[in-house]
Simulated assay, not measured.
Amino acid sequence: MIYGAMKFSIGGPLKLAFRPWVEGLENIPAEGPAILASNHLSFSDSFFLPAVLDRKVTFIAKAEYFTTPGIKGRMTAAFFKGVGQLPVDRSGARGAGEAAIKSGIEVIERGELFGIYPEGTRSPDGRLYRGKPGGLARVALATGAPVIPVAMIDTEKIQPPGKVMPKLMRPGIRIGKPLDFGRYSGMEHDRFVLRAVTDEVIYEIMKLSGQEYVDMYATAAKRQIADAAKAEKQAQKDAEKQAQKELEARQALEKERSGS
Results as ranks from 00 to 15, higher is better:
R127D: 14
L128P: 01
L128A: 06
Y129L: 06
Y129F: 14
R130D: 00
K132Y: 05
P133M: 07
P133Y: 05
P133N: 10
A137P: 02
A137K: 00
R138G: 06
A140G: 08
L141G: 04
A142H: 06
A142T: 11
T143V: 03
T143Y: 07
G144E: 14
A145C: 11
A145N: 12
A145L: 11
P146I: 00
V147D: 03
I148F: 10
I148L: 12
P149D: 12
P149R: 12
V150C: 13
A151F: 09
M152Q: 12
I153T: 12
T155I: 09
T155N: 12
K157W: 04
K157S: 13
K157Y: 06
K157P: 07
P160G: 13
P161E: 12
K163T: 12
K163D: 11
V164M: 11
V164R: 15
V164Q: 09
M165R: 15
P166T: 14
K167R: 15
K167E: 11
K167D: 11
L168H: 07
M169E: 11
P171K: 05
G172C: 08
G172R: 08
I173T: 01
I173D: 03
R174G: 08
I175D: 00
G176Q: 06
G176E: 08
L179N: 07
L179I: 00
F181I: 10
F181P: 00
F181Y: 10
G186I: 09
G186W: 13
H189D: 14
R191S: 08
R191A: 08
F192D: 12
L194T: 03
L194H: 01
R195E: 14
R195V: 14
V197C: 01
T198M: 02
T198A: 02
E200N: 03
V201A: 05
Y203F: 06
Y203E: 15
E204H: 15
M206K: 14
K207V: 00
K207P: 05
K207R: 15
K207F: 03
L208V: 00
S209Q: 06
S209M: 07
G210A: 06
G210S: 10
Q211D: 08
Q211P: 07
Q211K: 09
D215M: 07
M216L: 13
Y217S: 02
A218L: 03
T219C: 00
A221G: 08
K222S: 03
K222M: 13
R223L: 15
I225T: 07
A226N: 14
A228R: 15
